[in-house]
Each structure stands twice: as C-alpha cells, then as structure tokens.
Simulated scan of single mutants.
Amino acid sequence: MPSVLVVDDQFLIRSGLTALLTAAPGYEVVGEAEDGDEAVRLAAETRPDVILMDIRMPGTDGITATERILAGRDPGHPGGPKVLVLTTFDSDEYVFRALRVGASGFLFKDTPPDRLLAAIATVHAGEMLFSAGALRGLVDTYAAPPSRAPHPGLAALTPREREVLGLVGAGLSNTDIAARLVLSAATVKTHVHRCMSKLELSSRAQAVVLAHEFGLAARMP
C-alpha cells in the first residue's frame, strides 16, 4: 500500500485528492501540506512513499521543496519518496526543472482519477511517468551541453555501470537494456540502482538528465 503526502496551497484541491485516495483501496494518505516548507517538514516526519506536489505555491515552491526533500532523504528508507508533480501550469521548462531535481513524473490537475491512481502506482514502483521520447525531447531542449568537468560520482562507476547509465540516458527500459546487453532484467535493475546510489540520484529521470549533461547517453541507431 503506497503512503501518500498531498501538497497543494488550495484547500479544495488538497481535500479532493485526499478524499479520492482515502476512498481508493490500496492507498494511504499520511498528511497534507499547504506550502513547500510544510511539505519538507511533513515528508521528514511521515516518510511517504509518494508525494503529490504542486509546483506554484506561495513562499517555497514545489520544485524547491522537491529538491530539499530528496536531498535529505533517509538512507534507511531506500527508494523513497517518489515525487509526482501536479500543476495547472503548462510549461515544458517547469517540467524539466522538476525532473532535474528528482521528480519521477508530471501530471496536470485535470487528470482523471483512474489515471492519477495509476500514476501513483507507477512512480511508487520506481518507473518514470514519461515516455522515453518525450523525456529525450525535454532533455535535448533544456539540458546543459555535455560537461567536461567530471561528476564526483562518475569515477566510482564500473565500466558496466557506465554502459548501463548510457543506455538509461538513451531512454531504454530495463527490459530493453537487458536484451541489448544479454543480461537478466534483475541484473540490469541492480546496475541501475548502484548507478543511482553512487551518483546520489533520486529518480530514473534524473539519471537520464545527468547522462546527457555529461555526454554519457548512448546514441541509438
């Protein structure tokens, strides 16, 4: 059962999301926050599996709150929390900024309830809520050019881990990477997890961005 923290500055939206999740089997709401500072505090207190995060809020916005929450994640709570950004603001740059700081997905607030519940389950499972093509388009548009300055964690990667990171950067799923490298999906998952741990990344989308920014993303035919 994924535990969920709901973050939105509008009471009606917060209460509506809470009511939806409370009525749906298999979901637990562990708290509500009306701004980014409260979200950071409640995330530390409740340790949710998934955070539904509004972007535009007075004071600390959702992107800043996401960055602070994921930077301070508990090593004893591996894999969490996952942040699913909800907004009415249609901007690809906002989407990219949210992904860059570690959000796992992005939805508009008019998303139907069944799709919202499915999205929570998707990010809870560690998957991205974006098609590979859409994410590559955002990265190509907004990511910094490949950097010549070394990332402090890259030297710790094994050759196989760098290869896997490059394929993640190309947008391939674990299943696709396994087929390409003739490995089991479980082995690929382990490599991805080790890459993210060594690079201190919070989401697969963040790994895609990093691979592009450091010129590691594989070029697919």
Score class of each variant (00 low, 15 high):
residue 109 K to T: 02
residue 95 V to E: 12
residue 167 L to D: 08
residue 179 A to C: 00
residue 59 G to L: 10
residue 92 D to F: 08
residue 141 T to K: 15
residue 205 A to S: 15
residue 92 D to W: 08
residue 216 L to I: 11
residue 47 R to C: 13
residue 36 G to D: 01
residue 212 H to P: 01
residue 90 D to Q: 07
residue 182 V to Q: 13
residue 221 P to V: 09
residue 135 L to D: 03
residue 33 A to D: 06
residue 144 A to W: 09
residue 1 M to F: 08
residue 211 A to P: 04
residue 14 R to G: 00
residue 148 R to Y: 11
residue 71 A to T: 10
residue 106 F to C: 00
residue 40 V to M: 06
residue 198 K to T: 08
residue 219 R to A: 15
residue 5 L to M: 07
residue 72 G to L: 13
residue 161 E to G: 05
residue 185 A to E: 15
residue 190 T to L: 06
residue 27 Y to K: 07
residue 27 Y to R: 09
residue 54 D to F: 06
residue 210 L to A: 07
residue 148 R to P: 07
residue 15 S to D: 15
residue 201 L to R: 06
residue 104 S to C: 13
residue 30 V to T: 12
residue 108 F to H: 12
residue 210 L to M: 11
residue 10 Q to R: 12
residue 191 H to W: 02
residue 158 T to N: 09
residue 101 V to K: 04
residue 195 C to P: 01
residue 177 I to Y: 03
residue 4 V to Q: 11
residue 131 S to W: 06
residue 35 D to N: 15
residue 153 G to H: 09
residue 194 R to Y: 08
residue 195 C to T: 14
residue 115 R to T: 00
residue 181 L to W: 10
residue 85 V to H: 03
residue 99 L to Y: 02
residue 64 T to D: 11
residue 122 T to C: 13
residue 84 L to C: 01
residue 83 V to H: 04
residue 46 T to G: 10
residue 57 M to I: 08
residue 66 T to I: 01
residue 59 G to T: 10
residue 72 G to P: 03
residue 177 I to F: 05
residue 215 G to I: 04
residue 126 G to N: 00
residue 178 A to P: 03
residue 118 A to S: 12
residue 66 T to F: 04
residue 145 P to F: 00
residue 50 V to Y: 02
residue 121 A to C: 09
residue 191 H to C: 12
residue 18 T to S: 14
residue 154 L to H: 12
residue 16 G to Q: 03
residue 133 G to E: 15
residue 95 V to P: 01
residue 62 G to C: 01
residue 3 S to I: 04
residue 142 Y to G: 04
residue 117 L to R: 09
